[in-house]
Design a protein around this nucleic acid. Structure first.
Lengths: 336, 336
DNA sequence: TACAGTAATGATTACGTTTTCATCCAAGCG
DNA sequence: CGCTTGGATGAAAACGTAATCATTACTGTA
């Protein structure tokens, strides 16, 4: 807006060359203490701030990182974003956040556009194809969250362990016939969880009763209600919390009360899982931690030249036993 | 990463000067159709994309806009952000989103840093002082959402109208003694709503029973429960939905059932207001629309030189009558 | 036919930095 | 005392683009 003060203005005020001013900021240790002080003083007095565009032009570094999420209104993502942003701030990077609206093509296009304006990218639950992802990786360092692609670094959650805990929990409560309300088959974690459910129920000697695939929304959960009612089960595991809450809500319309008439378990532990009544039994996923870890690793990728650092580990999940899961009714309880 | 292709590479490939290539992109109409096609072809073949930093350096325009929010995990903001981002995308701008963590100082600092990297800024529920806000305005065009400062363009909600509808609703239901659970006094909209509550209850001839100020969180709502119980009221208006849900949750611990024993009304109409059981009666605020409108106005501000366009209007609010409000018990009903 | 006017293009400069290269001076050493 | 070494600094080039200015060719008119 007002008068832009450049490095030369500072140089003139401090009675040095522009190069020295630049050095004062970039590598302070190689400029004499007295001149350094003089430059810093002049810069402060003139309220000088370096022009980012000029720096970027010559160094090739933007000093920004980018975050891409499918849908900010999905309660899963804000905490991931917060984790990334906090860590990014810690490292001195502002974070460019983009919402793709769950559209794979738009996602790919936005990543292309973003790649030029950032030094690195964190992609949450990326929807695009493996090939596209790999192609983008050559434009700019990328770290994935909650998605696995061969060759790309990723922070993932131990979905499988979470499901195992769910199954153990249900078995301990004496449930035998257990329904599973799946998310969309196009979703990576939905596929992973579905597979784990089948595997663990089998090894636990329990009966899996597939209820079907539904949209990962409150409405999606609602629309699963009738099929759940017809399934002849005492407990149901749901792909995620939002769907579980929708399911419970709709079941109430049918006069079915949770947990008295049916045990329900969600997944994710979103904020509202603990606020609903009864509070939802679910599997906690360290979302904020995932964001922070992805950012840390991205930073390592961006700074270390050549040698690739240790890839991030899989994050632990944890069953949170709350109010929507209870012991199976006596007459339908499994032998223990 | 790979080989950066510059405007000169395209120029050579298309057998024209760099200037012509630039013109082809910036002002296509002034270059001959045949050469234009040749340039475009060469650019596409080489996968040329202009260097944003170089453009910024010379034009002074970044092509980005910024959004600042106090807390992304607060369900109020994601939809505002989405509104801004959609509109921004429509206008061809990527949006740089920053979360300030509810910290006024950090907010101010982030705005300063951001100002250099964007062409305009949307500030949601800004926490910093009026003076700081005004100071920042000279660095970069700013549009406020949900905050009013003399001299700054702002998109605001008709809080007052919303409160009026609440009061009318409660009066129609026959309530007489009505509690108000306020938010923090430091919050702009909290102050506005508190004032409106007092005014409208008075003109409606109803009795206001102040319950006190609490944190605008689920926990804050919970901690208001005891005072609500002691207030001898049949209905309570709460500063926002999250608090209202917390209040209802804690009341249940005391054996108080909503709406049978007490009518509760929230404010904001967050997603979960309709998902809770019973669904929350509340005042809907067009958050996404606010974001879109702020972005539109910001764009107008950025493009029109000199003459200031019409400032955005106040957005209409609407009472949503759901399950937590019912007719007052007969013995305590007001004369009608 | 000559000339003004205009459309299209090329050459050049400017944007604000970082970085390379050159310069200067003082200190250390034989 | 002369030469080398190295630390501190300045001069200048470079980054990739947009904009200004200059040049060319062409069109229409008197």
């Amino acid at each position: 807006m007002s008068v832009p003060v450049t490095i030369r203005d500072v140089a003139r005020a401090a009675n040095v060359s522009a190069a020295t001013v630049s050095r004062t900021f970039v590598r302070p240790e190689i400029v004499d203490a007295s001149t350094r002080e003089r430059v810093l003083g002049a810069a402060a007095r003139l309220d000088y701030r370096p022009n980012r565009a000029a720096q970027t032009l010559i160094t090739g570094l933007t000093g920004n990182i980018g975050i891409v999420v499918p849908d900010l209104t999905n309660p899963f993502f804000p905490s991931v974003v917060r984790g990334v942003q906090n860590q990014a701030a810690e490292l001195g990077y502002p974070a460019l956040l983009v919402d793709t609206g769950e559209d794979a093509d738009r996602e790919s296009e936005l990543v292309t556009r973003l790649a030029r304006q950032v030094d690195g990218l964190v992609l949450c639950a990326a929807r695009m194809s493996d090939q596209d992802l790999i192609a983008h990786q050559r434009q700019c360092p990328i770290v994935l969250i909650n998605r696995q692609v061969p060759g790309l670094p990723a922070v993932t959650f131990d979905n499988e362990g979470g499901v195992r805990q769910e199954v153990t929990h249900l078995k301990a409560l004496g449930h035998q016939r257990i329904g599973y309300v799946a998310g969309p088959g196009t979703s990576y974690s939905s596929r992973v969880r579905q597979r784990a459910v089948t595997a663990h129920l089998a090894t636990a000697g329990l009966t899996e009763v597939p209820v079907g695939s539904f949209a990962p929304s409150f409405e999606g959960g609602r629309s699963a209600a009738e099929k759940v009612l017809l399934a002849d089960i005492t407990a149901v595991m749901v792909y995620n919390d939002v769907m579980a809450l929708g399911l419970i809500n709709q079941l109430a319309q049918y006069g079915i009360s949770v947990p008295n008439d049916l045990t329900v378990i969600g997944f994710d532990d979103i904020e509202f899982a603990s606020m609903s009544n009864p509070a939802l039994t679910t599997v906690r996923i360290p979302r904020e931690q995932a964001g922070a870890q992805a950012m840390s690793y991205l930073h390592a990728l961006m700074t270390t030249t050549g040698s690739v650092p240790e890839p991030p580990a899989q994050l632990r999940t944890e069953l949170i036993f709350r109010g929507t899961s209870v012991r199976a009714p006596l007459n339908q309880r499994s032998a223990e």
